[in-house]
Amino acid sequence: MRCALQLVDHDRQAPTVFLDPCSGLNYDTAGRALTNTHVAESDATRFNLYIPPHSFAGNSLLKIGLNPKDLPLPDPPEIQIHDQHLSPTQRLILAAEYNDLDAARAAINEGANANYFRLGENNPFTAAIIGGSMELIDLIVEAGGHPKSSSLEIAEIMERDDVIDLIKDLDE
């Protein structure tokens, strides 16, 4: 969900895990999604973390990414925004996160809930902040979507002054 993961280092008896504070999901040190009994089952719980290309430069330095002279980065896992097994609201969230305006319009026309919110899951407004398109945010607002409690914080982290101004205007 593009939030910074937090290291949760238990004692030596329990495994070290990473926590996604936005979704409440836990991942092991290999990036595999762990079963979360306190988080509702959703599409997000079925995906492991995308691990970017990396290498170790010595004993204490991890190099993430590739130099431009290296091979091109692999494509991220393909997300099926148009998968008919997903609800219109789930397709709207994916379309907003991946900046697909046409798919977002189609999902809204199919009855997607632009103001959807469930604790531990992404929502259309926040997904549009992450997706980066002000046009998508405007579309979601026009369809009845509103910022959630974390929207302002996410906009500040992503340095989206345009979204920060919009959220403040909507709050007035």
Rank of each mutant, 00 (worst) to 15 (best):
P52Y: 00
S87V: 06
T16M: 13
D162V: 04
A33K: 11
A33D: 02
G111V: 04
P124H: 07
F125A: 08
A114D: 13
Y27M: 00
R12S: 12
D171C: 06
I140L: 03
N26T: 15
A33E: 02
E110Q: 15
L73P: 00
H82T: 13
V8A: 05
A127G: 03
D102N: 15
E110C: 08
G111M: 14
F47K: 12
E78G: 01
L73R: 04
I51A: 09
E172G: 13
I79R: 09
G65V: 09
R118N: 10
N26R: 15
V163F: 05
A127M: 01
N99C: 03
S87G: 07
L61H: 01
N99H: 10
R91L: 05
P15Y: 01
L136Q: 02
L101G: 02
V8D: 09
Q80A: 12
L92W: 06
Q13V: 05
M1W: 06
F117D: 11
T89Q: 07
A112Y: 08
L49K: 10
Q6C: 01
E110P: 10
H82I: 04
R160F: 03
G31E: 04
L92H: 05
A40T: 15
H54S: 05
R32L: 04
R32D: 00
P76Y: 06
A44S: 12
A106G: 02
A104F: 12
P147F: 02
K69V: 08
T37I: 03
E156Y: 02
K168H: 12
N109A: 15
E156H: 12
Y116C: 10
A14P: 00
I137S: 06
P21F: 10
F56K: 02
E142W: 05
I108V: 04
Q6L: 10
I51E: 01
M134K: 04
S42C: 14
R32G: 06
H10P: 05
E97I: 03
P53Q: 01
P68G: 03
C3L: 07
H54T: 02
A107S: 12
D100P: 12
D165Q: 15
F18L: 15
I137G: 03
A14L: 07
L139T: 08
N123R: 07
L66S: 05
V141L: 09
A112H: 13
P21N: 10
N122D: 01
G131V: 01
N48M: 05
E121G: 07
E142D: 14
L19G: 12
V17T: 15
E135Q: 11
S60K: 02
D20W: 09
N122F: 00
L73S: 08
E110S: 15
L86C: 03
G144C: 11
H38G: 07
A127Q: 07
R160P: 01
N48L: 05
F117W: 13
L119N: 14
L101P: 04
D11M: 09
L101C: 05
